[in-house]
Design a binder for these strands. Structure first.
Lengths: 352, 352
DNA sequence: TATTTTTCCGTTACCGAGCACGGAAATAAA
DNA sequence: TTTATTTCCGTGCTCGGTAACGGAAAAATA
């Protein structure tokens, strides 16, 4: 609202008995103001409820703000593509305030790559940072550096156990696993659940879906104490390997009505297998709205997807920093858990 | 982006060999410009890719834009409350551009009240209008008047079969009914579905949920050809009357495992009844996230809710008009169907 | 006390656009 | 041809801040 707020910097100056130059100096902590007039001006600002007009401000100051976004690199159709879309949305908003957004990608399986990305961003002297962290220690170090430089930063996707960040936007991981189990079992007489997991070759990598899997397992334990859980590891790089593993899984379990779940966005691997083998008797649930997952959903090889608007997470992160830089406002809530969307073949086409 | 775009009105003036005053005149069609220089200026603007700086613009022009929102009035906890929240969000966005939002409510069961609201809005000479229409003919008349005055207007919730509107934000009603039926039946052996409907005393009112009910019925017919559908009408004003009707319904149908659905936001009526009667054997599905519906969901008297972000619809509508007024941009898509959210007890707490 | 150095603050020229005002040039009327 | 009207356009002030510049007053030093 700009209505009653017609108080300008000149009004403040007049009321404080100084010139607007002096008021501007205290507004921006530019020094060269005596303690006495500083206090007086501050008091007047308070009393009058002065709020600077940010159009005038942006117009006059030829500042060049930059927000850097650090996210994992990706191929077409992969999870992080949606995040990049959100960055584009954020760019549009921030662009209106003359803020430049630049995205820096890293290999989420390579620590060096992450370090490089962080170093590059630090070197570019950003006004704000959005980060999707994958390596705990490195991120903590990075966050500390940002804090010391008073650079605001926002976590997306996941966050760390420190509290220097301006905000966090992500999904409640544990609950998403719990929810997923509920949808998978669907009140039926479930005796066994197959969790398909990605075989991770490199050690020392934090698996972001472990919390989710815990939620899943807890639900099963609470609601289906007699239900067995079986893990099958597949290789994201090799189709043949995957098919061999899944063939093995099907051979070992004679029951054709299987309950299959994946805790990450790669459920299309399972769907492809089922399609090729002509298997339609399984109930399959996975996560995230990749194109390949959606078509599996439409074709009936996947019954449900749990989705999150990771685009909105990124966009909100950029908006938060923009508002912080321009309007000097802090997000209403620091930790923002985005909703968990349940998609099936009847509502997925309207998911935007 | 404002980066490469450093071309100012002065650059244009210089390039066209006129003064900025003249450029400004053609920019705002204020006349008093010869056809010759007009064309030249237009050409230069095109060539240079000039985009006016809207900070400067807003700062200089002391215009007073107002957007009026016409929605049904409501009591605490009712459906339209969420829309009003969205209006507040929109107000915050629009407020940044010095735009005032004012909401005008009407009695959705009273034509006169709607007419009054429209007349009042027209009299206030708004810069833009957001409307949730309930009365077809009156709305058409109103829309025509707005078109003639070149006042942009946006439909929310539902729209009409004319195309003068700037945008529309709402739920796909038919599909929501279809989806609802899928969730209600849930792949089970359903023989009978009870639709609980609100008894409408006044005639001539368009029931916005009729399309939704059609989708519901179509799904049943396609997937459960032998399933019977039974309608029960209840009175929103009288609890006793409702209980009598529902008692009757339960008495007439001996099967305790009933499938019950409501196509509007009042499913809490059913939940209250079930709670009071201690009935936990039914599967109940309804619409919209009222507080009373949510607690019914948590307590297990309702199994699922189909929700829409009607707050975002309103906020988007206001954003669209704001951007149209300030940035002179038109929404990417004219018809925007918001996603249908499936809520159960495990994800409803994260629905925001 | 005279001089140098700091501290502190007012003045002023912008930023990019909107618009009122007044006047020159072109046209119409005398 | 002179005068009255139009048509058309440039000038200059404004909006609310930003920040460089320079100078007066106060403090420090000689």
């Amino acid at each position: 609202m700009n209505e009653g707020n017609k108080i300008t910097i000149n009004d403040v100056a007049k009321a404080a008995g100084v010139s607007k130059g002096t008021v501007d100096r205290v507004l921006h902590n530019r020094g060269e103001v005596s303690a006495k007039s500083r206090d007086r001006i501050l008091k007047v600002i308070e009393e009058l409820g002065y709020r600077p007009n940010f159009y005038a401000s942006i117009l006059a100051s030829r500042k060049n703000y930059t927000i850097s976004c650090i996210i994992p690199e990706f191929n077409d159709g992969e999870f992080w593509e949606l995040t990049e879309k959100g960055i584009d949305q954020g760019r549009e908003y921030a662009g209106r305030f003359g803020i430049t957004i630049n995205a820096v990608m890293y290999d989420q399986y390579d620590l060096d790559s992450f370090q490089n990305a962080c170093a590059k961003v630090l070197a570019s002297d950003p006004s704000g940072v959005v980060i999707a962290p994958m390596f705990r220690n490195e991120t903590l170090k990075f966050a500390k550096e940002l804090s010391e430089r008073h650079v605001p930063y926002v976590y997306i996707d996941s966050k760390l156990e420190e509290d220097g960040y301006l905000a966090y936007y992500g999904m409640p991981m544990y609950q998403s696993g719990y929810l997923c189990a509920d949808i998978l079992t669907d009140g039926r007489d479930v005796r066994k659940v197959h969790i398909i997991r990605i075989a991770r070759d490199k050690r020392g990598l934090s698996d972001p879906t472990v919390t989710r899997r815990t939620g899943l397992i807890d639900y099963i334990a609470e609601h289906y104490p007699d239900c067995r859980i079986e893990n099958t590891f597949i290789d994201p790089k090799s189709r043949e390997e995957r098919y061999r593993k899944l063939d093995g899984m099907f051979a070992a379990d004679p029951d054709p009505d299987k309950y299959i779940v994946m805790c990450n966005s790669r459920v299309h691997f399972v769907a492809d297998y089922l399609r090729d083998r002509g298997i339609r008797t399984c109930r399959v649930v996975g996560f995230d709205v990749l194109d390949r997952n959606l078509s599996a959903l439409r074709d009936g090889y996947v019954q449900a997807l749990i989705a999150q608007h990771s685009d909105r997470q990124a966009a909100s992160a950029i908006t938060a920093i923009t508002d912080y830089l321009i309007l000097h406002t802090v997000p209403q809530k620091k930790d923002n858990y985005t909703q968990m969307d349940i998609l099936n073949k009847y509502n997925c086409d309207y998911y935007i």
